[in-house]
């Protein structure tokens, strides 16, 4: 039995799939933004908070980084309704991804805090800067510069991670691939095109992030 690849039937779905790609980027962006806020709170709590808060943050990070994101979302997806909280698949996935990202981003931002050189803070003080001035002029630029590359990397990882939203029926790129597959039965064609679209998507995201980094923060990153 031979099978010939026929991409023709799938190509007319390209715009539909491309739109799904944008939903993937958006989902990743929302989860990343939420995760950054959680991560900032976590990193501050872990660095400056009282002991109980430090322990709590640590438990959160350790638990979420040592269990699969997919199962975390399953848990939310099935358990929250039983507790009377009804979320759409998109909301459930976004919540799961945000909580997961928050744990990883806590770790990354905490590491960033730790790299602010003591000498620069002393210099800021001798120059007569106030605390807010030294935060704005010394600490933040430094943190942004050291964290930009790992944060960008985390965003790309999250773009790839959004594909698991399809498992819960979210119509992002992989979810739409499921739909196209159900209509055309051209599975190999559909998923190879979608694989290629993820490559293009993440390449565009990497390129955009490195341009933004270079122009706004003067951070140089390897482009590929």
């Amino acid at each position: 039995m031979t099978y010939t690849l026929q991409f023709g039937q799938v190509t007319r779905y390209l715009p539909f799939l491309a739109e799904g790609g944008l939903i993937s980027l958006a989902l990743a962006f929302l989860a990343f933004a939420g995760g950054m806020v959680l991560g900032l709170l976590g990193a501050m709590g872990r660095t400056f908070g009282p002991r109980a808060v430090q322990r709590g943050v640590q438990a959160y990070v350790v638990f979420f980084t040592n269990t699969p994101q997919l199962v975390q979302i399953y848990f939310l997806f099935f358990v929250l309704p039983e507790a009377g909280i009804l979320l759409s698949p998109f909301q459930a996935v976004l919540l799961g991804m945000t909580l997961n990202a928050g744990a990883y981003l806590t770790e990354i931002q905490r590491a960033g805090f730790a790299t602010v050189p003591r000498g620069e803070l002393d210099a800021a003080e001798t120059l007569g800067m106030s605390l807010t001035q030294s935060v704005r002029l010394v600490i933040l630029p430094h943190v942004v510069k050291t964290l930009y590359a790992p944060l960008s990397n985390q965003y790309i990882i999250m773009v790839l991670g959004t594909s698991m939203a399809a498992v819960f029926g979210v119509e992002e790129l992989t979810g739409r691939a499921f739909s196209v597959n159900a209509e055309t039965f051209r599975s190999v064609e559909v998923f190879s095109i979608v694989g290629a679209m993820y490559i293009v998507l993440t390449l565009i995201a990497t390129l955009a992030l490195s341009v933004v980094g270079r122009l706004m923060f003067r951070v140089r990153m390897p482009t590929l």
């Binding site: 698991m164 599975s187 190999v188 998923f191 979608v194 694989g195 993820y198 490559i199 993440t202």
Partner: peptide, 24 residues
């Protein structure tokens, strides 16, 4: 190396799944 690090695991998994079925 550059390409396969940019494809989600789920997509690779489905590709392998369907591709092995093709051969029967």
């Amino acid at each position: 190396v550059e390409l396969f690090r940019r494809i989600p695991f789920l997509v690779t998994l489905l590709l392998v799944f369907y591709a092995t079925q093709l051969g029967g």
